[in-house]
Design a protein around this nucleic acid. Structure first.
Lengths: 128, 128
DNA sequence: CTCCAATCTGGAGTGCGCTCCAGGTCAAGG
DNA sequence: CCTTGACCTGGAGCGCACTCCAGATTGGAG
């Protein structure tokens, strides 16, 4: 069973050291192991939690909701339905987010094309 | 030339009244017209700025950068190159954002499929 | 053993983007 | 006129997610 130093866990998860400590402080990440001297040792399991958190954060889930998910998972097997539902609802929001993002990206591209059609000095209209 | 009351501008742009005032206060939106009594009147031009801001905000552009864009546009024709470049760079960031979002969305879906493959009570592995 | 980079703690501070408030003003319908 | 709902200003406050700090401790390399 491999153990990772904080810096290594940070590197692998993409979170800063401070963020790792913060996640532990607020109870998102629980029961992180320690050396006899008190320094953190992250397990593969911790790492896979972190990767999940990265996924959820990158898709815009608020931390409070991640906490909820994590505590459900810690509560045991009988919460699987609720966990699945939580993820499904989040996925639906992500889909909406992706649609919006694409739509606005298309607007943006159109705007850029407007600038590209401008030949040079002569100005047909102000480009707001 | 149509004029819109604040509430109408808010409705059409999707920004709150407070946000419209805030955007004016920080100089993002400039020269908004007023009635003799001092109440704002938004023009179609203001509205099209607001729609652009909505596009940029929805795609994650920080306000400082929108301010930069707006002040370039106000500075005149000689800034078109810089404006185009600014939008292009932003578009590139949005593309990156879309890639990341899709990638993490796929992870999320995989996670959900893991839960869906769980038949019921019997638990093959903890679903972190 | 010594050194020094990495890590520890609790708590304060930051940056962003609004959001809310009090106390007053405006303007359109009746 | 009068009422009433929309609007005005300046400034304080908020929620989120970190991020930074000081001052102490740890632990592997040499």
């Amino acid at each position: 069973m491999t153990g990772y130093a904080p810096a290594e866990a940070a590197r692998r998860s993409g979170f800063s050291l401070d963020t790792l400590r913060y996640y532990e402080k607020i109870g998102l990440l629980a029961d992180v192991g320690r050396t006899p001297g008190g320094q953190r040792v992250f397990t593969d399991d911790d790492l896979s939690w972190l990767l999940l958190f990265r996924c959820l954060r990158d898709t815009g889930m608020p931390i409070a909701q991640m906490c909820r998910y994590a505590s459900l998972a810690r509560a045991g097997e009988h919460t699987v339905d609720e966990r699945r539902e939580l993820l499904r609802q989040h996925a639906a929001q992500v889909e909406e987010q992706m649609r919006l993002l694409r739509r606005q990206y298309d607007h943006l591209r159109e705007k850029i094309r407007f600038y590209e059609r401008l030949p040079g000095p002569p100005a047909p209209d102000e480009g707001r």
